[in-house]
């Protein structure tokens, strides 16, 4: 991993956490009467981690990322558990979407290297599992399962839009 990749990831971490807790959390609070506008963009950090990063490092970063978001959301462990779940699934999704020639291990799995179609399937599937896990753990019971499902779907939809806006603006390569 080059130092450029390292800097890019540190910057991405800070940027996504700040966007999440300063902008999107406010947005969700503004719409408190309608609890479905809940976009989660920080999973983008997990999606773009280098493929060659050791597994334990990926887990640790996911945990730290989740806990950082939790600190601001005042919900210790909820975002962290979802982030750990997402990073756990990442290799399986990567294997499922592996292009014919395999991955270039020097590149991060990003839109700029692997194309729109590939990155859409990749981000959507990881994000779906993230939202599924996050909103289920947040509800923590089966009492209002319809509401939870609706929150999963709308949260997924808004998160995907948020992540793609960021990807279109910055087009990350490192």
């Amino acid at each position: 991993m080059t130092s450029r990749t390292l800097f890019a990831n540190v910057f991405r971490f800070l940027f996504l956490v700040l966007i999440q807790v300063l902008v999107l959390r406010r947005l969700a609070l503004e719409w408190a009467g309608f609890p479905y506008v809940n976009a989660l963009v920080y999973p983008l950090f997990l999606m773009l981690l280098p493929i060659t990063l050791p597994r334990w490092g990926q887990f640790l970063l996911a945990f730290i990322l989740g806990i950082s978001v939790d600190l601001f959301y005042d919900s210790p462990g909820i975002h962290a558990s979802a982030a750990v779940f997402t990073i756990y699934l990442r290799p399986y999704i990567l294997r499922w979407l592996e292009p014919r020639g395999g991955y270039n291990l020097n590149h991060i799995p990003a839109k700029s290297w692997l194309g729109y179609g590939w990155f859409f399937r990749y981000s959507a599937s990881l994000l779906f599992f993230h939202c599924l896990f996050y909103f289920s753990v947040e509800a923590f019971n089966f009492a209002n399962i319809g509401g939870t499902l609706l929150r999963i779907l709308t949260g997924f939809f808004f998160s995907l839009i948020g992540i793609w806006i960021i990807v279109m603006i910055f087009n990350p390569k490192e």
Partner: peptide, 24 residues
């Protein structure tokens, strides 16, 4: 290893969740 790490961290997360979130 991945599975162990996953389970280990989730145990930590859920301990945090049920201990520090009133409703949970």
């Amino acid at each position: 290893g991945g599975l162990f790490m996953f389970l280990f961290l989730e145990v930590i997360c859920f301990t945090l969740i049920v201990n520090f979130n009133e409703r949970h």
